[in-house]
Simulated scan of single mutants.
Amino acid sequence: MMMKQLLLSFSALLVFLHFTTILAQAPAKSPAQAPAAQAPVLPQAQAPALTQAQSPASSGPANVTAILEKAGKFSTLILLLKNTQVGEQINSQISNTYKGLTLFAPTDAAFSNLKSSTLNSLSDKQTLQLIQFHVLPTCISLSQFQAVSNPLHTVAGSSEQFPLNVTASSSNQVSISTGLVNATVTDNLYTDSQLAVYEVDKVLLPLQVFGPKSTAPAPTAPATPKQAPPTTITPVVTSSAMGLIRHAALSFGVAAIAAFSL
C-alpha cells in the first residue's frame, strides 16, 4: 500500500516536472504593438507653366547685353547698343524706374537684310534714334499688347514724330508696324517685372529717319514787268514819193508852155 502511494506521488511529480519544462521552453509572447505611424505623402510641388520667358532669380538686376549674348544671334545689335550707349542706359534705368523697359531686338539676319548703305549713311544722331526707336519706356508683357493704345511712345521721341503701332492676337502673336516696316515678334527672350526683351524678324525703321524727305517748293521768280511794244515805224516808199514829184513837175511844165503860147 505504501509502495503504491509512493509510485503515484512519484508519477505525479514527473508529470508536474514535464509540464514545467514545456512552459519554460515556450517563447514569451510580446504584447501587440501598433504599427509605426507613417508620415503622409505630400504631392510634389510643380512649377506653374510659364507662357513667358523668365530668368532664374539673380542677386542683381538684369543685364540686357548679357541676355542678348546668351541668345547668340544679336552681335550687330549688341555692337550698336554699345556704340550708342543705349545698352548702358537700359541697364541703369531698369533698376531706377518703376515702369521698366521693353526692347525689340532684331536678329543678325534682320540687319543683314538691310541694304548695305542703310546704316553707313546715318549720322550719329540718326543711329541713336534708330536704336532708341526699338525701346519702349514701359515693361509690357505679351498679353498686355492686346490692350495698348497706338501709336506707342518710344524712347526715340513722341508718338507723333516716331509712331510705332503694335497689335496682338489672343494667342499672343504680336505684329509691329512703323509705316515702313511690318515686323513680327518671333521669340520672348526675357521677361521680369522691370525688363522685357523680344526677338523681332526685322529692323524697325522709323519714318522720321528713313521716310521720304519733303522738299520745299522752289521759289517763284518775280514777274517781269511788261514792256511797251516797240513803236512801228512805217518806212517811206521812195518810189511813190518820186512819182508824185515827177507828176507835179510835169503838170507845172504843161502849164508853163500853155502860158507862153498865149
Score class of each variant (00 low, 15 high):
residue 210 F to Q: 11
residue 231 T to D: 14
residue 156 A to C: 08
residue 173 Q to E: 14
residue 171 S to R: 05
residue 120 N to I: 06
residue 220 T to N: 02
residue 176 I to S: 09
residue 185 V to C: 06
residue 198 Y to S: 09
residue 125 K to T: 04
residue 121 S to C: 02
residue 130 L to C: 03
residue 121 S to T: 09
residue 155 V to I: 15
residue 164 L to V: 07
residue 205 L to S: 07
residue 230 P to L: 14
residue 200 V to S: 03
residue 241 A to L: 15
residue 236 V to I: 10
residue 188 N to V: 07
residue 213 K to L: 14
residue 195 L to H: 07
residue 206 P to C: 05
residue 129 Q to R: 07
residue 192 D to F: 04
residue 139 C to T: 03
residue 160 E to Q: 14
residue 133 F to M: 06
residue 217 P to I: 08
residue 201 D to W: 11
residue 123 S to M: 02
residue 208 Q to T: 13
residue 231 T to F: 04
residue 237 V to Q: 14
residue 162 F to N: 07
residue 222 P to E: 01
residue 206 P to L: 11
residue 148 V to R: 04
residue 201 D to H: 09
residue 213 K to F: 01
residue 186 T to I: 06
residue 216 A to R: 05
residue 238 T to S: 00
residue 242 M to T: 15
residue 223 A to W: 07
residue 136 L to S: 00
residue 219 P to R: 01
residue 161 Q to R: 13
residue 246 R to K: 14
residue 218 A to L: 03
residue 192 D to Y: 07
residue 188 N to A: 08
residue 181 V to T: 15
residue 226 K to M: 00
residue 157 G to V: 03
residue 196 A to I: 08
residue 139 C to E: 00
residue 192 D to E: 03
residue 128 L to Q: 08
residue 196 A to V: 12
residue 167 T to Q: 14
residue 210 F to T: 01
residue 175 S to R: 03
residue 214 S to L: 11
residue 186 T to A: 11
residue 196 A to T: 13
residue 217 P to K: 11
residue 142 L to K: 05
residue 236 V to D: 08
residue 153 H to K: 13
residue 237 V to N: 15
residue 244 L to E: 11
residue 129 Q to G: 02
residue 215 T to V: 13
